[in-house]
Design a protein around this nucleic acid. Sequence first.
DNA 1: ACCTGCGGGACTACCCGTTGCT
DNA 2: AGCAACGGGTAGTCCCGCAGGT
Lengths: 176, 176, 176, 176
Amino acid sequence: MLHTATELFRAKGFHGVGLTELLTVSGAPKGSFYHHFPDGKEQLGVATLDFAGKAFGALIEQCFSSATSEREAIDRLMALIADHFEQSGYRAGCPVASIAIDAVPTSEQLTKAVQDVMEGWKAIVAKYAEGRGHSAKAADDFAERFAIALEGAWLLARIKQSKAPLMLVADMVTSN
Amino acid sequence: MLHTATELFRAKGFHGVGLTELLTVSGAPKGSFYHHFPDGKEQLGVATLDFAGKAFGALIEQCFSSATSEREAIDRLMALIADHFEQSGYRAGCPVASIAIDAVPTSEQLTKAVQDVMEGWKAIVAKYAEGRGHSAKAADDFAERFAIALEGAWLLARIKQSKAPLMLVADMVTSN
Amino acid sequence: MLHTATELFRAKGFHGVGLTELLTVSGAPKGSFYHHFPDGKEQLGVATLDFAGKAFGALIEQCFSSATSEREAIDRLMALIADHFEQSGYRAGCPVASIAIDAVPTSEQLTKAVQDVMEGWKAIVAKYAEGRGHSAKAADDFAERFAIALEGAWLLARIKQSKAPLMLVADMVTSN
Amino acid sequence: MLHTATELFRAKGFHGVGLTELLTVSGAPKGSFYHHFPDGKEQLGVATLDFAGKAFGALIEQCFSSATSEREAIDRLMALIADHFEQSGYRAGCPVASIAIDAVPTSEQLTKAVQDVMEGWKAIVAKYAEGRGHSAKAADDFAERFAIALEGAWLLARIKQSKAPLMLVADMVTSN
DNA sequence: ACCTGCGGGACTACCCGTTGCT
DNA sequence: AGCAACGGGTAGTCCCGCAGGT
């Protein structure tokens, strides 16, 4: 259910997915949905952000922990994203971006959730950067650049319907 | 009218803006709208992309033509974006991104329009890069990186509700 | 449409009638309804009150203008109500009461509309009472008693599923 | 629970109160409700009618038993109603009327319950009237007029958001 | 026996983007 | 050019069952 919602939001944007479609696809009836998400679609959005945020956070963690350099870590990560993106038919954009565009700053809850997820990702990256000898400030800066390049590349990949932009991220972030 | 539509799409995403709201805000009657845009909202989306694409293209042109370096050009450009973004109450995201997230690859027309605008922007940047001695390939690469950093920073600015990320673009693109 | 709505509200109460049922019965499509009543069901309620208020006001006027005494006027009026009530299968209660019970004082607009209709009816009665020599105060008092007896009898008629209570109104109001 | 339900129905009509709201306000869990009221909301309506019918019946009894005249009894009774009505913020209409409007003659059970309660009240009044020397028929007639005036005044009080109409009841009923 | 968490859809009021007639 | 009509769509609530737990 959360998985379905996440995929749909990524593909069509938060407002582009109707609750009915969502429930049809995931097979859940409306009553059940509002049992688990009494605050409706907004709460579901928060939940998918949390869900996708944790999942992707784990991916980042895994790539960085097993790599010998930032460059290698990012290369691996982007390869994974690119593969998934390709397999999804060039539809699976960043789960955060989909909601950020449609709901920030309209919904306070979603805005906060979006910010939290993004901060979480950056914190992981910064942690590893700091572990490799960068100062706290430099690590933060590195993480911010990573986030920018990641989001930008992901969006351009969607626009061009190609995974090529994703491959530039590592280069853009580690060259300094 | 186009202006209104563009601003609304930027603030709330393509699917987040209803036709009714749009017409109410812009003061136009419904019948007239379908007279000028017989294909409806989708056509309006294309028109706003064209409109915003040209406007921002001109801005890029102006910044690059009057600057002595890529670095300076991008700095000026980002400052302009950041100002407008701040004045809009941190709502005015990239007009292309708003539609890309909601309608790529769902609508063929919008997908094409989004691609065209983005290619147009990159072409301008590449033109100036090439004019400064880069090879065609290097210029293209520069333009692509610029686009990635621009979109990523604009999105992060929206997420953080701060113009800070926009200020990192020049650094990310020109450091190589 | 207004007629249909009025009848349904009278029979099942304001909240007892769904918009869908209403539109099905009256044959009107949803879009048209919201074109004419942009404020939705509440506005429709106000409109039915106005509609029924005017219609019944005319009936009062007619009965009082053609009668030689208050007693006779009320007798005629109640006979008309009783007939309609019987023909409706003992369902057609007072149109004002149906909405008053369900929406006063929840909805400000409906509360005001209900008050206005009732004041209108009383004003007609009072006008004729004053025309027959009562003081303004006595005429008002008479109208108030009439309203009380009318509403009470109409409600009891519904409860007992009988028109008998309606026949007591004239007696209750004119005996003083 | 019954108390809560009664108050809510009085304030917003039978169909104006959702089961969810009812259970939330009264603090009862959903499962328990259907344990005690397997026939659902309709059965609850019957129960509240019974509950409120007995309570108000006792009030009538008490007023009539302790008074030296019908006039005095009704005066006391109406004063009590008026006080409660005022304290409720002019919301507490007649518990019978709320359900009568929304459910008579739709639901057979509720129709019957409404009739029973009303007959019960009238029987009490008639009993005391007969005890004071009226014939059975005259007593019945008196009770009927009382019911009419009571319901009418209560409804008008709701409409006008004022307890004034309630004060006219005694006068309307005892003047003959 | 009593309660509760979790479904389960039909239904609510309302708005969507669109079309056709004036 | 423009207003009324259109009906399928929106998110959300309705009243109600049912398996499992205490």
